[in-house]
Nucleic acid binder design. Structure first.
Lengths: 226, 226
DNA sequence: TCAAAAGTGTTAAGTTTACACCCATGA
DNA sequence: TCATGGGTGTAAACTTAACACTTTTGA
């Protein structure tokens, strides 16, 4: 182990940062934290942490996410590595950013606030630490690209959702209005988005049909285009 | 510098690996090297190198590319970080992969062979070191995604090229045949792909019109769809 | 009774696909 | 003269976009 050729070269701190997206009341939100240590303690930042010695980088991201939210088996995808020399004012740190999509209802307020974490709307982000704003922008770009052909939006909705919620989610991610009838026509062509017998009476007097995403049906016929 | 909080955490070797694509005689090729050091000296690998202490990770990738090819100002894009614990059998190394697109004619054979580097067709890749095959697969995926809406294919062609060359390039990247008349119709709608007076007599008796990509025209009207 | 959100089809415009022959030249 | 690659247009199929009114119900 550690043969001489490699050991001529420098080593670096390697961190992961998580861009955790959720969706609530028609708004795309991101989970931010007041940085709990120096330097720049108290500034708004993404949730992050250092990679451990015998830990895959992907696993480090999962660990950080679980520490903050208590959730495992969450959809995550690497956004990329951020490696400018001076990106971290404390010391040289190379950070690998991950985007995670979660159902905001699964994260309780207590959990959030223990970590001084808060959901902030993407429309009104505060100034952020280091290059964390760039990370969020990249993550959103990836989300916008993926959302059109992959059924990942459902990760941010409860198991049962109305078509209006689904449409608002797409509008929030893409940043544009979608025609309601065209949207519903496309949804109805996808057999894996199933209408249930349940009715949502929270957001309308009349009540709206609740739908669910059927993962196994999707596996069999994964033609997705919204 | 190096405040106590950070210094509790481990440090890692960080490398860059370059997936260098080129195009020659109808084939998409990648520049591979016989690994010049232990462990696993002599195995086919991507061109890589360790990040230096005061060097941006992006700059490390540019440096490695320039060392191998002598070329600067090349189109490069980060593919992502590869961070499994045991991905490198020598020691723990976290590697950040970059894809680069170059005009194969600009790299002379001498340069290549000094570094024991060779262009290998994507259709007949040898077994590769570590996770380098995954890196190439990811890079190709990114290339396929980008090529449809961004004029990056031209980076792999000489300044003057025929429409047949351009079509063969697209076919090689996408891995499927394209209808000649439909392809040319789409090209003719893009004002920044300009016909020149020059004629190529190398590949046909009749001669084929040579075209060029006009970058400034593209900046003004960047609507690209092939 | 009325405000608020749910639900529902058709048509025109635009895009994509499929398809086959003549041309110019050097060997 | 013929083999090779260059060059050209149209019609049908499909996809996308635009658009407005009725329904249900709780307050």
């Amino acid at each position: 182990m550690s043969p001489s050729y490699y050991s001529n070269y420098p080593k670096f701190h390697v961190a992961v940062d998580c861009i955790i997206f959720g969706f609530e009341r028609g708004q795309l939100k991101v989970l931010l934290q007041k940085r709990p240590f120096e330097p720049r303690q108290g500034e708004w930042s993404l949730m992050g942490g250092f990679v451990k010695r015998d830990e895959d980088v992907d696993d480090a991201a999962k660990r950080v996410l679980e520490q903050l939210t208590g959730l495992r088996d969450i959809y995550m995808k690497q956004v990329g590595a951020f490696g400018s020399v001076n990106r971290d004012s404390g010391d040289r740190v190379i950070s690998i950013a991950y985007v995670a999509l979660i159902d905001i209802e699964r994260v309780t307020d207590e959990l959030n606030h223990e970590n001084s974490a808060y959901w902030e709307s993407m429309n009104s982000l505060p100034p952020l630490l280091f290059d964390h704003k760039d990370m969020i922008d990249n993550a959103l770009g990836i989300l916008r690209t993926l959302i059109n052909h992959h059924p990942i939006g459902f990760q941010m909705l409860p198991p049962l959702f109305t078509l209006t919620q689904l449409q608002l989610l797409y509008e929030a991610i893409l940043g544009e209005k979608i025609d309601k009838r065209n949207f519903r026509k496309r949804v109805s062509e996808m057999s894996f988005i199933e209408k249930t017998d349940a009715i949502d009476k929270v957001t309308s007097k009349r009540g709206a049909a609740l739908y669910q995403f059927n993962f196994t049906a999707y596996e069999q016929e994964p033609n997705f285009k919204l």
